[in-house]
Simulated scan of single mutants.
Amino acid sequence: MKFAIIALCLVAAVLASDKYDELNDNFDISEVLNNPRLLNSYAKCLLNRGPCTPEVKQVKEKLPEALETRCAKCTEKQKQMGKQLAQEVKKHHPKLWSDLVALYDPEGKYQQAFQDFLASQ
């Protein structure tokens, strides 16, 4: 019985630590979307065309894995922010969107999964 309880605790600990850091959950995505200078700076980082802030560098490092796993390690807040950001950039900055897609999904292998992610609640 003790072994089962310890095993369940270990599984719970592994599952809990299998999420991305929640510190970025309080990031104000609307501030970036409504500030062309900030958006441009972040885009340059993500596109390997300029320096990165520590926060954007974290996102950049996790982006390939998040795309590959359909954001499996993302918190709900991170998923919401990702959807909002993707929808806004696609709609209002199509050139930036196409540059990001060309860099992070040049073969188009994540397109369907990403469309499913955007359509999910």
Rank of each mutant, 00 (worst) to 15 (best):
K77E: 15
L85I: 00
L46Q: 12
L23Y: 08
N34Q: 13
Q58L: 07
Q78I: 01
S41P: 00
V14A: 06
P106A: 09
W97T: 05
K73H: 04
N48K: 14
P51L: 11
K109C: 01
A66V: 04
C71A: 11
L100D: 03
L118K: 07
D25K: 07
L10A: 13
Q84K: 13
P36C: 10
A86W: 10
L23V: 06
I29M: 10
L38I: 06
R70C: 07
E76F: 08
P51V: 10
Q111A: 12
N24S: 10
H93D: 12
K60G: 07
E61T: 13
I6Q: 01
L63K: 02
N34H: 14
S17K: 07
R37Q: 12
V11P: 00
E31H: 05
K60E: 14
T75I: 03
M1E: 13
V14W: 12
A66W: 14
M81E: 12
C52A: 01
V11A: 10
M81K: 11
P94F: 07
H93M: 04
F114H: 13
P64G: 08
L46P: 04
L103H: 07
G108Q: 02
N40Y: 09
L67Y: 15
K2W: 08
C9Y: 05
E22W: 01
I6A: 08
L33I: 10
C45W: 03
Q112D: 06
Q80M: 09
K77H: 09
W97S: 13
A12P: 00
I29L: 05
K91I: 02
G50A: 08
Y42S: 11
Q115K: 11
Y110T: 03
M81S: 11
E65A: 10
A16F: 13
V59D: 02
V11W: 05
E76N: 09
W97E: 08
L118A: 07
V56I: 14
G50T: 05
V89N: 03
G82D: 01
K95W: 06
S30K: 07
A119N: 13
N26Q: 07
V59R: 08
K19I: 00
L67S: 08
M81T: 11
L15S: 05
N26I: 06
L10T: 05
Y104I: 01
Y110D: 01
